[in-house]
Write a protein that binds this DNA or RNA. Structure first.
Lengths: 236, 236
DNA sequence: AAAATACATATTGCATACAAAGAGAATTCC
DNA sequence: GGAATTCTCTTTGTATGCAATATGTATTTT
């Protein structure tokens, strides 16, 4: 049995990760070493290493002699997001179709089943996390070490943006989210068939749907302000 | 005056970085915490944080309860490299042309002048490092936080591969490298003119030239084996 | 009274000491 | 003699204590 009890360091890493993805820790929030180490039951030394790792993956920003902060999402980074996402997503799904192993496809199907489930009876948090996991798996399928860093960085902010539009439950939104789930099924089919062109096109479709939701719900009056939290003092 | 004396931590970080880029530390080489901390005059705690940071950026791989290792370059990762590079490089240069500041353009020109200089009288090490810096600056110009992680990861292995073909000095190679320098000038011109289409095309040209060199000198008999070092025991 | 400076406090950065896990060698058992 | 096991030694992981840096407050000076 490999690793039945996860180390406190790992669980701390995971907990911070999901807290950031689900906006429980809002962009710009201050992360105090002392309180975090107390909360997760480890000393400051390993906690600092966790923060360094999270910084490398884009979850937090480190400032010299200052506390770590959850990475921001300003309008400039949103612009960057809109530029990079279709390209990277397309490439990842293309490669996923070419390289996916049967075991990975099985895991993707399981995750998609979970996604359908939480769409019906789960919280916004669950939906964002399971959707995030779905796309993470496609990244694992692609298995390109040079593309993965940017892909994972995109997934972070995609999940955080999603949190804002998985919440409302009006009819248009429900339809849009259901359509996303249908696209997931198509993506699985393309990957299973090894049809890389189809997978790449589906990535664009999936992204366009996502973009549409973002444009609609995140910036109703145009995108000027940071998302999630006021510019400073997010914890106060 | 900002930061006249770099901290031992920073210089350690920089030294390891350049040592890895220049293959002084070969892919797969073991990195011992004790000896490194002694070498750079800091304790193991900050050194471990440096290693974690380098791991996040793709310079080294960390193994649980085992030493850190310089990240490998096997034939599979080379395949990934050939797939990802043209796409990312094209996007970066396109964005660089759109967003470069005058100060950045000035720095790029200075770096290009240095590149010309080391082509004439520098070592392979100098050439790889200055060329690497040139492309790093284009990344800064693009300034897209989602594209940068993959771009920087590509630059690492590009520099390491370059080290193998900046060395020989036969006529064909010299011509190829000079052509690369000419392309740098064209890239600068396109960026200065804000011509993003031209910049994107030049990125492809530049990459094709680079790929040609790689195909010629790195894998004369086809690409089967890891680059640089034997699979294990690189320091022995 | 306003601004600048000095002081006090809180938080990060670093070093040392200790605990735990792995690798390798010697010994024992078959 | 070969293989497995135990023991030792090396190396990584964690905790604690101290030093350095930044922030906020109070005091002093103009």
């Amino acid at each position: 049995m490999p690793d039945s009890t996860p180390s406190p360091k790992d669980s701390c890493y995971q907990a911070l990760k999901t807290a950031i993805l689900t906006l429980e820790l809002q962009p710009g929030a201050d992360l105090d070493e002392a309180s975090l180490s107390a909360e997760f039951g480890l000393s400051r030394t390993p906690l600092r290493e966790v923060l360094r790792r999270l910084a490398g993956e884009g979850y937090v920003d480190l400032r010299q002699n200052r506390g770590a902060r959850v990475s921001e999402m300003s309008h400039t980074t949103l612009r960057d997001f809109f530029l990079a996402a279709p390209m990277i997503y397309g490439a990842i799904l293309r490669l996923a179709a070419e390289n996916a192993t049967p075991a990975q496809i099985e895991e993707l199907k399981t995750t998609q089943a979970r996604f359908r489930k939480v769409l019906q009876q789960g919280s916004a948090r669950d939906r964002a996390l399971v959707n995030n996991r779905f796309h993470e798996i496609t990244g694992e399928m692609a298995g390109n070490v040079y593309l993965l860093p940017s892909f994972q960085r995109l997934l972070i902010d995609h999940a955080r943006i999603s949190m804002t539009f998985y919440r409302p439950r009006d009819a248009a939104m429900a339809r849009s989210v259901d359509e996303a789930a249908d696209q997931h099924d198509q993506i699985i089919a393309a990957i299973e068939a090894g049809d890389s062109d189809a997978a790449a096109m589906l990535a664009i479709d999936h992204w366009n749907l996502s973009r549409h939701r973002i444009e609609l719900f995140v910036m109703p009056g145009g995108l000027d302000l940071p998302l999630g939290a006021p510019p400073r003092a997010a914890t106060a």
